[in-house]
């Protein structure tokens, strides 16, 4: 069988770089440069994708967590903007965050917001909304834009996220609200969406969450409305705000 020196040599160098320590066969100074480059690039990438987490846990712990992620879930694409889907899971198990269990869901929310920022540009196909008045709802389906995401948490993740992102100087109000919910053991479901080029998150109730989950499952509009009727959800009230928030891609025949 033909040997594969190129493959094995490349794998050996990559293993040495990700190991983050000296390995025989490589000049330690040169290897250290690649190791530092990798860690610095990974840190920069996560700082962009997880700004709330960095503020919550501080630079030193954030850098440590970034290095751990490199080992446990190394990048697999050439686009650092897609890396970090497992960061929340890693933070869940960091002993240093044992007393701050909400940070992991904060990371999951950061990542959804970041992905929404990169999602395909989309706005509602307004003409398709006319189908709502002309076609039976069991033959229609309402689809959401790519950037729309849901995240349910046992913690007040939206209040925490808003404390770091509200541009109106209301951080104190969000922190107070988060602390009150933490005391009461109240969680939040975050709805992530993008208007123009600015992704946002807001807390939604269980009725809207169930409704959006039905839409994400791709059921017919009739089935989604049937399910929603049991939760007190009002479609007619929801629709104008959903259009304004750029949640809807279109209404299409089912």
């Amino acid at each position: 069988m033909k040997s594969k020196p190129m493959k094995s040599e490349q794998q050996r160098l990559i293993a040495a770089i990700f190991a983050g320590e000296g390995i025989s066969g490589f000049d330690p100074k040169g290897l250290a440069i690649y190791q530092r480059n990798l860690q610095a690039t990974a840190l920069r990438a996560l700082e962009i994708s997880f700004p709330t987490v960095e503020q919550l846990i501080g630079k030193d712990l954030f850098r440590y967590a970034a290095n751990r992620l490199l080992v446990l879930s190394p990048p697999t694409a050439g686009d650092w903007g897609t890396w970090g889907a497992d960061f929340g899971d890693l933070l869940d198990h960091l002993i240093e965050l044992e007393d701050y269990p909400y940070v992991a869901d904060g990371a999951r929310l950061d990542f959804r917001v970041h992905q929404a920022n990169r999602a395909a540009d989309a706005s509602v196909d307004a003409s398709s909304l006319q189908l709502l008045g002309t076609v039976p709802t069991d033959r229609l389906r309402l689809t959401l834009n790519d950037g729309v995401g849901l995240l349910a948490s046992d913690y007040p993740i939206v209040d925490i996220w808003m404390a770091h992102h509200d541009q109106r100087g209301s951080a104190r109000r969000w922190i107070d609200a988060a602390q009150e919910k933490m005391t009461q053991g109240v969680g939040q479901t975050a709805l992530v969406y993008r208007r123009h080029y600015h992704s946002q998150a807001r807390a939604i109730g269980s009725a809207e969450r169930n409704w959006l989950q039905s839409l994400q499952e791709g059921v017919s509009l009739a089935d989604a409305l049937e399910r929603a009727s049991q939760t007190g959800f009002e479609f007619e009230q929801w629709l104008p705000q959903a259009v304004a928030d750029n949640l809807i891609r279109n209404v299409e025949r089912y």
Binding site: P5, M6, K7, E9, Q10, Q11, L13, I14, A15, I17, F18, Y34, N37, L38, T41, A42, P74, P75, T76, A77, G78, W80
Partner: peptide
């Protein structure tokens, strides 16, 4: 592009060639 512990990996750098 290579493999690390049997899984695909992107090294995020311009690594030297033989």
């Amino acid at each position: 592009w290579s493999q690390l512990n049997g899984l695909p990996v992107h090294a995020g750098d311009l690594l030297p060639l033989a």
